[in-house]
């Protein structure tokens, strides 16, 4: 088989696909939609994973202090926590700052202090940055300190997020498998149709001494082309939908740490193309095997 043969097989495959033009076009759209859903699931998974990773990296513990703890005492506690192994930073948040944060969360049109009749109900707290590995240890250490009211650990937020991520990961695997199977089956069916239309021609080629490789190669190309065409469609879909979703999240939920768009969409396009091409080729081989 030579390079010239490859060009010939490609032309043959294209000519073969033109026989059932409309049906094949619809099939390509179907493959494209299946691959598109795969790309979107994978993109969602990648972003959740990224959010989880980001949260895990600067795992933070917030130690809320009793009402009667003074700022000096709070600073002392803060220094003791900073001495603990695995603690990277600590910061005392005074009651006024907490109040300001709550105000900005609620919105500026309500004067919260007047509602509270000039009394700030919040106590001081300490934000503690820790290495993810020692978070539990620091939590129990802080719990034993005098003047500590309660401790909020980011693990509480992280745990359900990680559960969701792993769930989506599994769902993603199922989707990949399903999409690959559907694509393979669809391509196998189309290629078999094409083969039955050219049964006589294949037989004549064999009579002229063509190798099985020569007889079958155009059909392998046909399947690969179907998969690739669907994947191309899907890749554009992923890029368009991905770009739109990113834009929505950036404006609507700006604090959500998203995975960097440009490389991610590139990876997704590659994933979609890879699955499409592989499943398409596999479909052809299935068709040739079962012929």
């Amino acid at each position: 088989m030579t390079v010239g043969d490859l060009g010939f097989f490609l032309r043959e495959a294209l000519a073969g696909l033109k026989i059932h033009r409309v049906a094949n076009f619809i099939s390509i759209i179907c493959i494209g939609l299946a691959l598109l859903s795969l790309g979107l699931v994978a993109g969602t998974w990648a972003n959740l994973q990224h959010v989880a990773d980001t949260l895990r990296q600067d795992a933070e513990i917030v130690v809320y202090l009793d009402d009667d703890v003074s700022l000096q005492e709070a600073e002392q506690l803060s220094r003791r926590l900073l001495d603990h192994q695995g603690v990277s930073r600590t910061r005392v948040v005074c009651p006024d700052e907490t109040l300001l944060r709550v105000e900005s969360l609620i919105g500026s049109d309500i004067d919260i202090l007047s509602v509270l009749e000039g009394h700030n109900p919040f106590a001081a707290s300490i934000e503690v940055g820790v290495d993810a590995g020692v978070a539990a240890e620091v939590v129990s250490f802080s719990g034993n300190l005098a003047g500590v009211d309660y401790i909020r650990d980011n693990e509480e937020v992280l745990a359900p997020l990680l559960r969701l991520t792993s769930l989506i990961q599994w769902a993603g695997l199922v989707v990949i498998l399903a999409v690959a199977l559907v694509t393979t089956a669809l391509v196998a069916h189309i290629v078999r149709l094409g083969m039955s239309a050219r049964q006589q021609e294949m037989e004549t080629l064999r009579l002229l001494g063509a190798s099985e490789g020569f007889v079958c190669a155009p059909f392998v190309f046909e399947g690969a082309l179907l998969g690739a065409a669907g994947a191309l469609f899907a890749a554009f879909g992923v890029a368009a939908a991905g770009g739109r979703v990113y834009q929505l999240i950036r404006t609507g939920l700006p604090y959500l740490p998203l995975a960097a768009g440009t490389p991610l969409l590139g990876y997704l396009a590659l994933l979609v193309l890879g699955v499409g091409l592989t499943a398409g080729t596999l479909g052809s081989l299935v068709a040739l095997r079962s012929a």
Binding site: F8, E201, T204, L207, F214
Partner: peptide
Amino acid sequence: FQDFRLFEGRTVRENVELGLRVLGIAG
């Protein structure tokens, strides 16, 4: 062949060329 066994749907040239291509003769 008595029944020709041509490649239907192809041109005269393609029919002859295909007989050569299977032998690896191209260009």
